[in-house]
Each structure stands twice: as C-alpha cells, then as structure tokens.
Computed example of a mutant assay.
Amino acid sequence: MLSDAFTAFAQIFSPRLRGVLLKAIALAVGLLIVLAIGLNVALNHLVDIPSYPWLETTLAIVAGLGIVLGALYLVPAVSSLVAGLFLDDVADAVERASYPGMPPGTPQPIARSLAYTVRFFLIVLAVNLCALMLLLVPGVNIVIFFIANAYLLSREYFELAAMRHGSPAEARALRQANAVTVFLAGLLIAPLLMVPVLNLVTPIYGTAFMVHLHKRLAGRRRSRLIEGA
C-alpha cells in the first residue's frame, strides 16, 4: 500500500497529469473563494454589529480568521467534487502509465458520474460542517475531521476508480470486502487535507492512489477466483 501511495504522489506531478493538476487546483481555489464569500455574506447578514470602530475592526479580524478556518473544513467537500469531475482524466493517465498491458477503464456516463459526485459532495460537506461545529471541543474536532474524511474520501475515490471497471454494485462490494484496507489507504490521504497548498492536490492524489489500490485488490480477487475454480 505504501508503494502505491508513493507512486501516486510522484505521478501527480508527472507531465501526463500536470495539466489536470493545474486545472483541478484552479477549480478548487475558485470554489473555496466562492464558499468563503458566501460565509462572509451570511455572517454579515446574521450578525448585527454596533457602530463602534474598534469593535468593527476586531470582529472583522475574528471573522476573517473564522472564514479561513471554515475554508479549511470545506476543503474535503471541494476535494470530493473536484475528484469526481477529473476522475476519468486522472485514472486514464495512471492506467496508461502504470498498466499499459491491461484493458483501460470505461468512463462513467455523465449523468451517473454527476449524480454520484454531487451526492458525495453533500455528504462530505455535511460531515465537515458538523466537525466545524465541534471547534470549541479541543482535540475532538480534529480527530473527527481526520477519521471522517479518511473514511469518506477513501470510500469515494475507491468506488469511483472501481466503477470504471464494473457496475456501482460491484465497486461497492469490492470496497466492502476490503473495507479495512481501503480505510487504511484513506488514512494516507487525509493528512494532506491539513497541509495548506498540498490539500489542493488531494483530489488528484487520492484518485491516482485508489486507481493503484483498485488494480491490486481486483487482481488479488481474480487470483482467488481462479484458484478456487
């Protein structure tokens, strides 16, 4: 698994994926800016600030820091959305580079891909907003943030990669049969969310990593079926 993680991280900066990486980063930054503006507008409408200059300045600084922190908690949701949009580009590049002798995956129908991506975006957004509400509970919010995103992102990235080679039900079954392995892989993805700048490459890294993991687990499953035949 560690070799898959290192290989995936190296590949996201390769010429094959550099263009996709830059587009994904640009989209993620744009979405975070839009969400931050939305948070700021909501804050201004919900909070009635008395007209004291010193208080306005203090609250503006606190609000700014709050928006930055809030944006950090929104990165996983943005990451899940970006991953769904660029999945096939990333997966195709990784499969061509690392598995040239194997049949390539089939891109998902646009409607199914968008529905799956939006559904996961809303789930991840809800979970991370809940984690944000626990901000005043020292330590607990970080643990929840880390574990919840390790599970959610590993689940999404793996199933998206697996659906290029089978139905959604088959992808889900393969993930469930290897639930511990997939979750442990998620623990190698989640730390990136806490590192500024690097958290922007999470969708590309997570997708590439899960393409490798899927190939390995699917190959192991085929070997067991052949041995049992």
Rank of each mutant, 00 (worst) to 15 (best):
L200S: 01
F158T: 02
I147H: 05
H214F: 10
W54M: 11
L153Q: 13
A169Y: 03
F145S: 04
I67V: 14
R220D: 12
P191Y: 04
I204V: 11
G38D: 07
I12F: 05
A83T: 08
V94G: 01
L160A: 15
G19Y: 09
Q108F: 01
A185F: 04
L134S: 03
S3V: 10
L39C: 04
S3G: 11
G206Q: 05
L192F: 13
N128I: 07
P100A: 11
K23I: 04
P196W: 06
I142L: 13
A185E: 06
S223R: 15
D48L: 13
L188H: 01
A24V: 08
L59A: 08
I25Q: 02
S80E: 08
E170C: 06
N40T: 10
A169I: 13
T7N: 05
G228D: 14
L132S: 10
E159N: 12
L134I: 07
F86S: 07
M210S: 05
P107V: 00
V140K: 12
C130A: 12
L153T: 07
V47W: 15
D88W: 06
F146S: 04
L72K: 06
V82D: 00
A36N: 04
I144N: 07
L136E: 14
F6D: 10
L217C: 08
L69S: 09
L35M: 14
C130M: 13
I204H: 02
G30H: 07
G64C: 12
S51R: 11
M1I: 08
V75G: 01
I226Y: 12
A126E: 09
A126D: 10
V75I: 15
E95R: 02
A150Y: 02
R18Q: 13
I123E: 04
V75C: 06
L174Y: 03
V62P: 05
H212I: 01
L46V: 10
S167G: 12
V118P: 01
H214E: 14
G70N: 03
I37V: 15
V41L: 14
L22K: 11
R224P: 00
A77F: 00
E56H: 08
M133G: 13
A71H: 01
G30N: 13
A60Y: 11
H214K: 03
V41W: 12
S154G: 10
S3F: 10
R222C: 01
L174I: 02
